[in-house]
Structures are given as structure tokens and as C-alpha cells.
């Protein structure tokens, strides 16, 4: 593997349409919020340099469309992910209920080498809305679900106000790095490369 493996961390953001995936990504990368973002069609990504212990990494953050009908596209984008961010809207029960589907869908389509330990991070977004009065998913409930799925780190965010966004992505990057590092160590030690290394995103092997 070229050195790219070590410096590029791929993160996928998933969640129902309208929960604020695009807004979160832009708040983190560009430090701004606009209510003129368009609904995402297809997929796109932004990159950001992050530093850990004097090593530089490129965080590649993938933003995909939330509507169910487009999920079959996922396979092209999920492969090679180092971390998956699941987003719901604290003001929408359905978006929370769907987290499980998103998680499973991701595991199937991305088929990571170690699904049990693949890092997810959950974000409950839009905590600013109506001063929290229209909230329908309690923090407790969300944390309980995260705990039940192998202690998934959980953050409550507002892409609009920039609350907790930086912290959440720090954690996301750290987790992504863990997967990356493990694979890096794991790879040379094993003979059967074909089964242990998950495909990176398309194309970078050749």
C-alpha cells in the first residue's frame, strides 16, 4: 500500500434526509452555516487536515443523500470507510428510530473487516431548535441506544450554532485513525491479504 493509506481517513455521514448531515460537515470544515444548502443528490465529500501528535492526516468526509430510495448507491461510497457517523434530529423520533437501519445498512454495504469493532459515532443534531422545547428524543434514550451497540460515542450538536461540532469531529477523527492504524499494523503480518484487507475506496490500489 502506498503511504496514502496512512494519511487519508475516510468518514461517512449517514442519517435520514434533513437531519443536518450537510450542515454539520460544512460547519466543521468551513465553519459556517447557511440555510440555503440544497438537499444532497448523489454524494460529495469535503476534506480537512487534522493533526495528531505531530502527524498530519486528511480527513475525507463523505456526505450522501438521506432518502431511502438512494441507498442502493451506498455501496460505491461506503467502501473503505474508517469511521461512520450516524446523525439524527433530536426533534424527530423517526430519524432516531432509523439509526439502527442506517448502522446495519452500512455494515452490509461497506462490509468492514471487523464489523463488531467498527467505529461509529452518533450525533443528535438540531438541539438549538425552539430552545430545546420541540425535542422528542431524550439524551438518556439516545445514550442508552449507543451503549447497547458497543458504547458508541455520542454527541449532541447544533450545526446551526456550531455547538459541539468541533468536539464531535475530533472524536470521529480519532476513531477513524484507530481503524486506520490497526489495519496498517495488521496488514503486513498476514499472509492472506485478500481476506483481511478491506477494499479502500475504488481505484487507489492501482
Amino acid at each position: 500500500m502506498p503511504s496514502r493509506r496512512r494519511t487519508l481517513l475516510k468518514v461517512i455521514i449517514l442519517g435520514d434526509s434533513g437531519v443536518g448531515k450537510t450542515s454539520l460537515m460544512n460547519q466543521y470544515v468551513n465553519k459556517k452555516f447557511s440555510n440555503q444548502y440544497k438537499a444532497t443528490i448523489g454524494a460529495d465529500f469535503l476534506t480537512k487536515e487534522v493533526q495528531f501528535e505531530d502527524r498530519l492526516f486528511t480527513l475525507q468526509i463523505w456526505d450522501t443523500a438521506g432518502q431511502e430510495r438512494f441507498q442502493s448507491l451506498g455501496v460505491a461510497f461506503y467502501r473503505g470507510a474508517d469511521c461512520c457517523v450516524l446523525v439524527y434530529d433530536v426533534n424527530s423520533m423517526k430519524s432516531f428510530d432509523n439509526l439502527n437501519n442506517w448502522r446495519e445498512e452500512f455494515l452490509i454495504q461497506a462490509s468492514p473487516s471487523d464489523p463488531e469493532n467498527f467505529p461509529f459515532v452518533v450525533l443528535g443534531n438540531k438541539i438549538d431548535v425552539d430552545g430545546g422545547n420541540s425535542r422528542v428524543v431524550s439524551e438518556k434514550k439516545a445514550r442508552a441506544w449507543c451503549a447497547s451497540k458497543g458504547n458508541i460515542p455520542y454527541f449532541e450538536t447544533s450545526a446551526k450554532e456550531g455547538i459541539n461540532v468541533e468536539e464531535a469531529f475530533q472524536c470521529i477523527a480519532k476513531n477513524a485513525l484507530k481503524t486506520g492504524e490497526e489495519e496498517e499494523i495488521y496488514l503486513p503480518d498476514t499472509i492472506d491479504v485478500g481476506t483481511s484487507s478491506q477494499p479502500r475506496s475504488t481505484g487507489c490500489e492501482c
Binding site: K38, I41, G42, A43, L73, A76, F77, T202, G203, C206
Partner: peptide, 21 residues
Amino acid sequence: KQNDCLNYFFCFRWILIQFKR
């Protein structure tokens, strides 16, 4: 083909909404 791009998903948005974006 060599670069695993034959699914042409990069044209998805073009087609879905007729280049609207």
C-alpha cells in the same frame, strides 16, 4: 474500467435532475 469507475455514479446527479445543479 481500469480505475473501477464504470458504474458512472459520478454522473448520477447530472442525470437524476437533468443537470439542474
